[in-house]
Lab assay of single mutants.
Amino acid sequence: MISLIAALAVDRVIGMENAMPWNLPADLAWFKRNTLNKPVIMGRHTWESIGRPLPGRKNIILSSQPGTDDRVTWVKSVDEAIAACGDVPEIMVIGGGRVYEQFLPKAQKLYLTHIDAEVEGDTHFPDYEPDDWESVFSEFHDADAQNSHSYCFEILERR
Rank of each mutant, 00 (worst) to 15 (best):
E139Y: 05
Y111P: 01
S63R: 03
P55C: 13
K32I: 00
I5V: 00
D70H: 13
P25S: 07
T123M: 02
R71V: 09
G97R: 05
L28D: 00
V75F: 06
R71Q: 08
M16E: 02
G121H: 00
R33G: 03
E118G: 13
N37S: 08
P21L: 03
Y151V: 11
A29T: 06
K38E: 03
R71W: 09
A29R: 04
M92S: 05
S77L: 08
L28A: 02
D70Y: 13
I115W: 02
V40R: 01
I91W: 05
N147T: 06
I155L: 07
D69V: 08
F125V: 00
S148M: 00
W133Y: 12
N23V: 12
E154C: 14
W47A: 14
G86Q: 11
R98Q: 03
M20W: 00
R33Q: 14
E129P: 09
W30Q: 06
D142P: 12
W30Y: 15
K32T: 04
A26H: 11
F140V: 14
P39V: 14
V13E: 04
L24S: 05
D87W: 09
R33N: 15
L110V: 06
I41A: 04
E154Y: 12
G97V: 01
A7V: 03
E139C: 07
D131M: 04
D11C: 04
N23A: 15
V40S: 06
T68H: 15
V75Y: 05
A19Y: 15
E48M: 13
D69F: 09
S64F: 14
T113V: 07
Q146V: 08
A26I: 09
E90A: 03
G51Y: 10
M42V: 00
G86A: 09
L24E: 12
N147S: 06
I91E: 01
P66M: 11
R44D: 03
H114E: 10
G15L: 02
H141M: 06
F153S: 03
A145D: 06
V13R: 01
Q146M: 09
P25D: 07
R52G: 15
V88I: 13
A145L: 06
N59T: 13
E157Y: 06
E48N: 13
P21M: 02
L28S: 02
E17T: 02
M42H: 01
I60C: 10
G51L: 08
L8R: 04
G67H: 07
F125G: 02
E139M: 06
I115H: 03
L54T: 01
R57T: 00
F137V: 10
M42L: 15
V99C: 13
H114K: 14
P66C: 09
D11R: 14
L24V: 15
S63E: 01
A117L: 04
R71S: 15
P66E: 13
G51A: 10
D87F: 12
